[in-house]
């Protein structure tokens, strides 16, 4: 064990070593030095573990302010529909509900059995469009066609420069008077895209045979653009995050339509929810 107090006499590269900032060649050279330098050994002994922890820190990011309202709203909507939802199952070798007890239970939402293709623990699937330009994201077969529509009918405004406009809200209701309802907000982000949060209730789960698609529609349907597609779980409720290059200012209406392989990528499916946009 190196004597205490010698770390302050260590070579500066000892700090680089414990923080993982040395290049490969420099690290190899320092390793040779370390074997014969008690000061650097003291520094590594004193700071090595903390250096490892620091290298794996979560980012110093702040959640968006509106996330609280969205979280609480989706929670209250779920609670209104299903007041006694608790379900518990054992997990082998997993985490316990408390730090002091690593052998107990872990809670998953109902329905307990996840879809075979997704294993998503009962959560709704979200298929997101990539941000424009160049944001990574999954583009599904349905999304690819819809993205082509976006490119064909729109001149994308303000790429990379952010939006001068504020957020939009769409209150969605069933045109046929069904119980289904929803709410969507679209807010501009720093990259020039729009972050859409869509919450729906009382929609039918079609499994994998059909899906829902969120459309922007201008008056007279002169312009349409898809914001993304989604599936709902058996509860019929869910909150979905989507990203779109489409500026809601250019469209008056949001529609949620049932899409199937027969009308994939086209504005043809039955409208289950519709609502006018309101600038916030």
């Amino acid at each position: 064990m190196p004597p205490k107090g010698q770390a302050d006499l260590a070579h500066p590269q000892a700090a680089d070593w414990v923080m993982g900032t040395l290049g490969l060649d420099e690290a190899a050279g320092f390793q040779l030095h370390l074997s014969g330098c008690p000061h650097c050994q003291a520094a590594v002994a004193e700071f090595g573990q903390l250096g490892q922890m620091l290298q794996h820190l979560p980012p110093a990011a702040e959640p968006p302010p509106e996330l609280e309202a969205r979280t609480i709203a989706s929670l209250l909507a779920a609670a209104a529909k299903d007041p006694t939802p608790t379900q518990v199952h054992q997990i082998p070798g997993g985490l316990a509900p408390a730090a002091q007890d690593r052998t107990a239970t872990e809670i998953h939402p109902v329905p307990e059995a996840p879809p075979a293709d997704e294993q998503s623990g009962g959560m709704a699937k979200v298929i997101r469009f990539p941000r424009w330009p160049g944001r990574a994201g999954l583009l599904t077969a349905a999304g690819a066609v819809a993205a082509a529509i976006i490119a064909a009918v729109l001149i994308l405004p303000g790429l990379g420069g952010g939006h001068p406009n504020g957020s939009w809200a769409f209150t969605l209701a069933s045109p046929s008077g069904q119980a289904a309802s929803g709410m969507a907000t679209a807010r501009p982000d720093a990259s020039g895209s729009w972050d859409i949060t869509l919450t729906v209730q009382h929609l039918e789960n079609f499994g994998d045979s059909k899906w829902y698609e969120c459309w922007y529609v201008s008056p007279g349907q002169r312009k349409v653009a898809s914001a993304g597609t989604f599936l709902v779980p058996d509860s019929g409720s869910g909150t979905f995050s989507m990203t779109s290059a489409v500026d809601p200012d250019e469209f008056s209406t949001m529609q949620i339509r049932i899409q199937s392989p027969d009308n994939n990528g086209a504005l043809q499916g039955t409208v289950v929810l519709s609502g006018q946009g309101k600038k916030l």
Binding site: T71, T86, P97, T105, S241
Partner: peptide, 24 residues
Amino acid sequence: AEEMVQESFQRLWRSAGRYDAGRG
């Protein structure tokens, strides 16, 4: 990350009845 936050509170609500303060 936002989705995870929302889902975490949904699961907290669903499992609140099973929380045991004696365990942590």
